[in-house]
Design a protein around this nucleic acid. Structure first.
Lengths: 147, 147
DNA sequence: TAAATAAAAGATATTTAGGTCTTTTATTCT
DNA sequence: AGAATAAAAGACCTAAATATCTTTTATTTA
């Protein structure tokens, strides 16, 4: 559903939001190492997010990536929009051009429930919400299950 | 969510099930023309479905594709399984390996609702159900909206 | 049984997503 | 100002999905 680029984006933003501050920015290498992602590929992804002001960055010594307060309140849909676009949430489940709300395909009404549900979920959920969950013990990088 | 191959598969099965009979089979060219799909690409897809006995085919003069009664009752999930696999319905929404039911990622519980919903939808819905809908006037190839 | 037909199978090409490497630019610190 | 640092940008490479073309096999009919 979401491309690799997109889940890499979500994971790295959450990681940056959780661990970086303006005083202590995170370098691309650090992030890629921790999340086990290809450095240069992630670099491209973060570039795009910086351009859209979803992630903040500073070049040079002690530079790196961080999130300002506003960025932490970014909803997941905005990130998906930047990386993958919103085609999934608008296109017909059977890929039919002739399918619409007024002239729905045989799958439309049923499919729409979940497609719209995901749209709602991604537009409600913010980066800060995910960070809160991680702090509460949910699975993430290095948040290993406690038995 | 579903690959092009997969929606092509679904659309062509529905079309075959709707228009072909054992007496009057449909040739690959006819199908591809009607559904506006690349002939040889569709051919490959139908081959796989024939191998899995989801579509029936006969070679030679008056040969072509059709669906037997059992095939018409195939659920959509079986088709998705053959073409795309079921990874979408089992994998974590954030692509995390460490995410599980007992140690869920920050998105898991919310995402699961829709992912499982789609799984249920696709396992309930049969080809015959879609054909019934088309006969009732739902959007499909050549089923143009009536104003 | 030979010719015609149509799917199956194989080989190859194109496009897109994913990934790597190198050079440039901005910033900091000495 | 010059060296060091780290992101940005650009060029390039690889693998997978999508698409096309050609040959083979099975079937029918004359």
């Amino acid at each position: 559903m979401l491309s690799k680029s997109c889940v890499y984006a979500l994971r790295s933003i959450v990681y940056i939001g959780h661990h970086a501050t303006v005083e202590h920015k995170l370098g691309i290498k650090e992030i890629a190492d921790e999340l086990d992602l290809p450095v240069h590929f992630l670099s491209k992804i973060l570039q795009r997010l910086v351009k859209h002001n979803i992630v903040q960055s500073v070049k040079g010594p002690h530079g790196g990536f961080f999130l300002n307060d506003k960025s932490k309140e970014t909803n997941l849909l905005s990130i998906i929009d930047v990386i993958d676009g919103l085609a999934f949430f608008t296109n017909c489940g059977l890929g039919l051009k002739e399918c619409s709300e007024t002239h729905p395909c045989p799958l439309h009404d049923d499919f729409k429930i979940y497609r719209d549900g995901l749209y709602f979920l991604f537009s409600e959920k913010k980066i800060s919400d995910l960070i809160t969950k991680i702090e509460a013990g949910n699975a993430f990088i290095r948040n290993l299950p406690q038995y």
